[in-house]
Amino acid sequence: MESKQSFFRGRGGRLFSVLAVLIVIVFLAGGILLATNYKHLGNLVKVVTLVRTQYLQTVDTTQLVDGAIKGMVGSLNDPYSVYLDPKTYAQLHEQIKGSFGGLGILVGIKDQYLTVVRAYKGTPAAKAGIVAGDVITKIDDRDARGIDLETAISLMRGEVGSKVTLTIDRKETTEPLQFTRELIREEISVPTVESQVLPGTAIGYAVVSQFTEHTSEEMKENLAKLQKEQVKGLILDLRDNPGGELIAAVNVAKNFIPKGPIVFIDYRFGRDQEFSSEGRTAQLPLIVLINGGSASAAEILAGAVKDTGAGTLVGVKTFGKGIVQTVFPLDNGAGLKLTTARYLTPNRNDIHEIGIQPDVLVQPEENSVLDVQLDRAVELMKQKIAG
C-alpha cells in the first residue's frame, strides 16, 4: 500500500504545491508580508491538504475555496461585510431592482433576530397571517437566529410556485407558529413609496419602506399626486426603513433638502465624495417620522433633514448604521459586499452606532392600536400650516 508520505509527494503533493503558490501570489498581491505570516500561511496549506486527503467525505475544491473566503470575510467581525454566493448575489440585485420571486415581506435584523418589518398586502406572507414584529426563527430547516440578512433573503426567495416554511415567534403566543399554508413563492413587485391625504386634513402622508432603484421615481410620482390634491404639508414616514441604495436616498433627499450638501462619503482610500442638492423641489412644510428601525440610507435622509433644518424629526432615535457597503462582482457569479466607507451628515456628524436623535421625542405605546407618533406629527403639522 502506498504510504501517506509518497502520496503527499505524488499527485496530492503537486496539487497542493500549486495551491500554495497561488495562495502566496494572493497574499503578495494584498501586500501581506510573508516573512511575518509564513506560519499561518503554512497552516492554511496544511489544513487544505488534510481536508482533501484525510477527511471522511470527498470535498469539492470550490466548497473549500468558498469556505476560505467566507472565513476571511467573517474574521473582519463586520456584520455588514458578507461573501455572496452566486444565488445570493443574484437575489441581492433583484432586491435592489425592487422585483423578485418571494413571499412579500420586508425583514431586518433587530436585537440579532430576523424580524418582519412589513408584510405587503395581497402577498403570500400577508395571506398566511404574517405580521410586522414576527420573529423568524427558522427558514425551512435552517436556524435563522444570528443569520445575516443576505443569507436569510436568499433562503426565502426561489422559483415562483415553490414552497417555503417559516417558523415564527410572536409576542402574543407561547408556542412557535409554523406557517406552511399558502407560503408559495410568487413574483413580487413591491412599491417602496405609498401615500395618501390624511382624512379630514390637508396633510400628505408618504411611507418609504426601503430605497431601491425605483424609489426616487416613485417619490416624484407620489409627490405630484399629493400636490394635485393641494396638500399644505407632508409627513414622511421612515420608521422601520432598513435602508438600501445610497444613490436612491440621495435622489429622494433632493426633493426636500435646500441647496448644499446632503451627505459626505468618507473613504479610507481615495478622495472623499460629496452629494449635494441644487435646491428643494417640494416646497412643503416637512415632518419626518423615525424610530430604531430607521437605518442606513434612511438615516442619510433623516440626517440631512435635521442638519439643514429642512423639516422636523419626530419619534425616537434611529438605528445608527453610518457605514457604506460596496458590492464587488467576483468570478462565477459570486460577489463580495464589503464596508468601504462611512458617511457623514451635512454637519459632518458620524452617526455610526450613535444614531440620530429626533427633534421631538415621542415614545410609541406598546400594545396600543394608536399611533401616537403619527398623531403627534399631525398635531405639529397643523401648527406649522396654521403658523
Rank of each mutant, 00 (worst) to 15 (best):
S296A: 15
L238W: 03
Q230T: 14
A341P: 13
D266W: 08
K228A: 15
I262P: 09
L238M: 12
E245V: 13
G244Y: 02
F269A: 14
G270Q: 11
P261L: 00
V288R: 00
A282K: 06
R271D: 14
E299W: 01
G322K: 01
I300N: 00
P242Q: 03
P242W: 01
Q227C: 12
L330P: 10
L330F: 10
F319V: 03
V263E: 08
A298W: 02
S296R: 04
V314G: 04
I287N: 01
L236K: 02
I323H: 00
T312C: 12
D240M: 03
R271A: 14
I300T: 03
N291W: 01
N241I: 12
K337L: 12
Q283H: 14
V263D: 07
A310I: 09
V324K: 00
G233K: 05
V316T: 15
F256K: 05
K254T: 13
N255F: 15
A249W: 04
A341M: 10
L344A: 06
A248G: 12
K254V: 11
F319D: 04
V263H: 08
V327L: 00
F275A: 07
F264C: 05
K228F: 09
L289Y: 01
L286S: 03
F269S: 14
D272I: 08
A253R: 03
L336E: 08
G270C: 11
N251P: 07
A253D: 05
Y343F: 15
N251T: 09
G243H: 04
Q325N: 13
K337M: 14
N332Y: 14
V327F: 00
V252W: 04
I257L: 08
S277K: 05
K259T: 15
L246C: 02
I290Q: 00
A224R: 15
G322F: 01
T340K: 08
A224C: 11
F319K: 13
G233Y: 04
I300A: 00
T312K: 14
T308G: 07
L238S: 03
L313C: 11
V327A: 01
I257F: 09
G270F: 11
T339G: 05
F275P: 07
V314Q: 02
A298G: 15
D266C: 02
G293E: 00
G311Y: 07
F264D: 09
D272G: 10
V263M: 08
Q283A: 13
A295Q: 07
F328Y: 15
G292H: 00
L313E: 10
L336P: 10
A297W: 04
A248K: 01
A224K: 15
E229H: 13
L236I: 14
G233M: 10
G335H: 06
G333Q: 08
P346S: 06
